[in-house]
C-alpha cells in the first residue's frame, strides 16, 4: 500500500484511526479534513497522521464521502450536473443507522469537514422532527430526568409548539 507513493505522481497521506487502522488517501481527499490541512501544507504529515477520535469504521465512511466529493468537483462536469450528483450521493450516504449518523456528525465536527457536518446535522434534525418526544428519547438513548410535575410544566410552557 505504502509503495504507491513512488508509483504515482499524486501525493498521498496516511491517516491512522483510533483503533490503529491506517488509511491511504490522496491529497485532494486529505485537504478536506480541515483539522489536518495545516499539517499537510506545512509538510508535517509524515509518517502518518493519528486521528484519535475516529474509529476505522467511521473514518472509512468519511474518506468515502470526501473522495466522492473531491472526484465530482474535479471531474470537469458542469456545475449543475455535479451538484445533482452530489445531492444524490449525499442522500444515499445519509441512509445509515442513526448511531452511525451521530458518530459521523461528531467525526465531521472533530475533523472539521463543514459540508459533512452540516449534512449530518440536517439529517439528524429531520429524524427528530418527525418523532414524538418519547421516540426522540429512544433514538438518542436519553433518559427522561424530569419529574412528573416538571415534565407537565415544560410541556405547558411549550404547549403552543405541540399544536
Amino acid at each position: 500500500m505504502s509503495s504507491s507513493t513512488e508509483l504515482t505522481e499524486k501525493k498521498v497521506f496516511l491517516l491512522k484511526s483510533l483503533d490503529g487502522v491506517i488509511f491511504e488517501v490522496e491529497e485532494s481527499v486529505a485537504v478536506q479534513l480541515e483539522v489536518i490541512r495545516e499539517l499537510i501544507e506545512g509538510d508535517c504529515a509524515r509518517p502518518f497522521i493519528s486521528l484519535y477520535n475516529v474509529t476505522s469504521e467511521i473514518l472509512a465512511l468519511v474518506i468515502e464521502y470526501c473522495k466522492h466529493h473531491a472526484e465530482t468537483c474535479s471531474g470537469g462536469t458542469s456545475a449543475t450536473i455535479a451538484d445533482e450528483d452530489l445531492k444524490t450521493f449525499d442522500n444515499e450516504f445519509m441512509n445509515v443507522d442513526e448511531n452511525i449518523l451521530l458518530e459521523l456528525c461528531s467525526a465531521a465536527d472533530y475533523l472539521d469537514i463543514k459540508s459533512l457536518f452540516e449534512l449530518t446535522c440536517r439529517t439528524l434534525a429531520s429524524l427528530i422532527k418527525d418523532r414524538t418526544i418519547i421516540e426522540v428519547r429512544k433514538m438518542f438513548n436519553v433518559e427522561n430526568d424530569f419529574s412528573v410535575v416538571e415534565e407537565k410544566a415544560v410541556r405547558k410552557e411549550f404547549a403552543w409548539a405541540f399544536k
Partner: peptide, 25 residues
C-alpha cells in the same frame, strides 16, 4: 453539537425538543 443539530429544526420542533430531558431543555 446537539445545539447545532437542534438549530436545523423548525422553531416549534426546537421547543418541543426542550421537553426531552433537562439537558435538552
Amino acid at each position: 453539537l446537539l445545539e447545532r443539530i437542534l438549530a436545523c429544526l423548525p422553531v416549534a420542533s426546537i421547543f418541543k425538543a426542550g421537553c426531552v430531558c433537562k439537558r435538552w431543555h
